[in-house]
Computed example of a mutant assay.
Amino acid sequence: MPAVVGAIKVISVSSSSIFNVGDVHTMRPESFAKTFAGGGSFNTGNGIHIDLNRSTTYVNDSDVVDQSITD
Results as ranks from 00 to 15, higher is better:
residue 55 S to K: 11
residue 14 S to G: 11
residue 62 S to N: 14
residue 41 S to G: 06
residue 6 G to Y: 02
residue 60 N to W: 02
residue 30 E to R: 09
residue 4 V to T: 10
residue 13 V to W: 01
residue 42 F to D: 13
residue 38 G to I: 01
residue 54 R to W: 02
residue 33 A to I: 06
residue 22 G to H: 11
residue 42 F to H: 11
residue 31 S to Y: 13
residue 46 N to E: 12
residue 29 P to W: 12
residue 6 G to H: 04
residue 47 G to C: 01
residue 26 T to D: 05
residue 49 H to S: 15
residue 9 K to P: 02
residue 1 M to W: 01
residue 34 K to T: 10
residue 7 A to N: 13
residue 71 D to K: 06
residue 37 A to L: 04
residue 39 G to T: 08
residue 68 S to W: 03
residue 12 S to I: 06
residue 37 A to Q: 05
residue 71 D to Y: 01
residue 57 T to P: 03
residue 2 P to E: 07
residue 49 H to M: 08
residue 68 S to D: 09
residue 12 S to P: 00
residue 34 K to Y: 02
residue 59 V to N: 15
residue 47 G to F: 03
residue 28 R to M: 05
residue 64 V to N: 15
residue 53 N to T: 03
residue 62 S to R: 14
residue 62 S to D: 13
residue 35 T to E: 11
residue 37 A to M: 08
residue 10 V to L: 05
residue 56 T to R: 10
residue 49 H to K: 14
residue 34 K to I: 12
residue 23 D to T: 09
residue 25 H to S: 15
residue 26 T to F: 08
residue 49 H to V: 11
residue 22 G to W: 10
residue 9 K to S: 14
residue 56 T to E: 08
residue 10 V to E: 02
residue 10 V to K: 02
residue 32 F to T: 09
residue 16 S to V: 03
residue 70 T to D: 03
residue 45 G to M: 06
residue 30 E to I: 02
residue 48 I to T: 09
residue 64 V to R: 15
residue 40 G to C: 02
residue 40 G to Y: 09
residue 46 N to C: 03
residue 2 P to S: 05
residue 14 S to E: 10
residue 41 S to D: 03
residue 53 N to V: 10
residue 31 S to H: 10
residue 41 S to A: 15
residue 7 A to Y: 07
residue 20 N to T: 15
residue 42 F to G: 09
residue 48 I to Y: 01
residue 57 T to E: 12
residue 51 D to S: 10
residue 41 S to W: 04
residue 65 V to A: 05
residue 43 N to L: 15
residue 68 S to P: 02
residue 70 T to F: 04
residue 69 I to R: 14
residue 8 I to A: 04
residue 69 I to W: 04
residue 30 E to W: 05
residue 3 A to D: 03
residue 3 A to H: 02
residue 39 G to F: 13
residue 71 D to I: 03
residue 12 S to Y: 10
residue 17 S to L: 02
residue 22 G to M: 07
residue 1 M to G: 14
residue 71 D to H: 01
residue 32 F to N: 08
residue 24 V to S: 15
residue 8 I to W: 04
residue 10 V to G: 02
residue 36 F to S: 11
residue 14 S to T: 10
residue 15 S to R: 12
residue 69 I to E: 08
residue 32 F to C: 03
residue 24 V to P: 00
residue 48 I to D: 09
residue 51 D to V: 06
residue 71 D to V: 01
residue 44 T to L: 13
residue 3 A to Y: 01
residue 27 M to N: 14
residue 19 F to T: 09
residue 54 R to A: 12
residue 17 S to N: 05
residue 13 V to T: 09
residue 26 T to L: 04
residue 59 V to Y: 11
residue 63 D to N: 06
residue 71 D to T: 00
residue 55 S to H: 12
residue 50 I to P: 00
residue 68 S to K: 05
residue 58 Y to A: 14
residue 65 V to Y: 04
residue 18 I to Q: 11
residue 10 V to F: 00
residue 5 V to N: 12
residue 49 H to Y: 07
residue 67 Q to I: 07
residue 43 N to A: 14
residue 17 S to M: 00
residue 41 S to T: 14
residue 40 G to P: 01
residue 36 F to K: 01
residue 17 S to Q: 12
residue 6 G to K: 08
residue 70 T to W: 00
residue 39 G to C: 04
residue 39 G to H: 05
